[in-house]
């Protein structure tokens, strides 16, 4: 088997909180606290979880927008997290990002032509001006924008069109991996469908690997091959899409699936309403981080932190229930369909 194009190993990112009289570090935000995953060529892995669980921090750490607290990021066999900026440059091209907000991520003082030409020039991907123009035109085709719109400014486009420009800019660098951080979340329903379809087509056509960060489980199910569920800086479950949606193995995933409203009136489904809010990542609960909201928590959960263990082939979950005999493990069966009312 070939090596994954991206590997993340035991990634940690803690943000110091400064305070007190001398402005010293008084506490830390454990934004990402030891997570590992890998993505194959042409594969989409989704990171899901609620606000503040650390999804964007994972993406930014991979992009080296800040240093890691601990862990490694390996691109195609080469460790990149500790590379000096100079050596990193050519590798940087290979990981590109599309952010949620197409408004703030495009420079308002650049025409579309220049927005797209910038990465082509930076990474020396065109030999001459004619080739540059040709590449820009082809990018416009790829994201289904009219070629003659290259002379326009970002504000002249709608939200969905701006997101197309953002995608074209990411593709301009000819990446192997695209990180989509809530790339369709801010878009209107009908426009969202257009962009989702575009991303899917491009991925197939170009064989891109994709890290798809989203809190929208229905979109994730539609887009992804595998899913990693995060809770308070940790991955609590990883599985293929089918396994995760048909037989979630972590109580948090189970609750998450049951909470998504489905557009089927009168659908009879099992509902798990979690109590309380997500605790603060400054002071995550001891033991299992989910135990304060988990309906199945028992004594061990309050003291002992569960680690990701394999439950079935390719299916990993971090929950003590799986150390129990099946008869005493409510997460042993397959109840995805009851939770989401699949008909």
């Amino acid at each position: 088997m070939s090596r994954p194009v991206l590997e993340v190993m035991d990634l940690k990112k803690h943000f110091p909180i400064h305070g007190g009289f001398f402005g010293g570090v008084t506490a830390k935000v454990y934004a990402v606290d030891g997570i590992s995953f890998s993505i194959d060529k042409g594969e989409t892995l989704s990171l899901v979880g609620e606000s503040g669980c650390g999804k964007s921090t994972v993406g930014k750490a991979i992009l080296r927008l800040f240093g890691l607290t601990d862990g490694q990021v390996v691109l195609d066999g080469t460790r990149i997290d500790d590379m000096p900026a100079g050596t990193l440059r050519p590798l940087r091209r290979r990981i590109q990002v599309v952010f949620q907000d197409p408004y703030s991520s495009l420079n308002p003082r650049m025409r579309v032509r220049d927005i797209l030409a910038e990465p082509i020039r930076n990474f020396g991907l065109a030999k001459n001006k004619a080739e540059l123009e040709e590449r820009v035109a082809l990018l416009m085709d790829k994201v289904r924008l009219p070629r003659d719109a290259v002379g326009r400014w970002p504000h002249e486009f709608s939200g969905g069109q701006r997101q197309r420009i953002g995608i074209a800019r990411a593709l301009a660098a000819e990446p192997d991996i695209i990180i989509c951080d809530e790339a369709v979340s801010a878009l209107d329903v009908s426009v969202k469908a257009q962009i989702v379809n575009l991303l899917q087509d491009l991925q197939k056509e170009l064989g891109l690997a994709m890290l798809f960060i989203s809190h929208d489980l229905a979109i994730v199910e539609h887009m992804t091959h595998r899913v990693a569920v995060m809770y308070l800086g940790k991955i609590v479950e990883v599985a293929t899409k089918r396994d995760l949606f048909s037989a979630p193995k972590h109580p948090y995933t189970e609750a998450l699936l049951s909470a998504v409203p489905v557009p089927m009136p009168g659908a009879a489904r099992e509902r798990i309403i979690l109590k309380g809010d997500v605790p603060s990542p400054i002071n995550p609960p001891k033991g299992c981080r989910f135990h304060t909201r988990c309906g199945y928590a028992f004594d061990r959960c309050r003291v002992d932190e569960p680690v990701l263990k394999i439950t079935d082939a390719g299916h990993w979950a971090a929950c003590h229930l799986h150390d129990r005999p099946a008869a005493e493990n409510p997460m042993a069966g397959a109840k995805g369909a009851d939770l989401i009312a699949a008909h």
Partner: peptide, 15 residues
């Protein structure tokens, strides 16, 4: 009709 068709339904990968 378009609106309903444009949202993915949770569980569609199972069915």
């Amino acid at each position: 009709q378009g609106l309903l068709g444009s949202v993915p339904k949770l569980g569609s990968s199972l069915t």
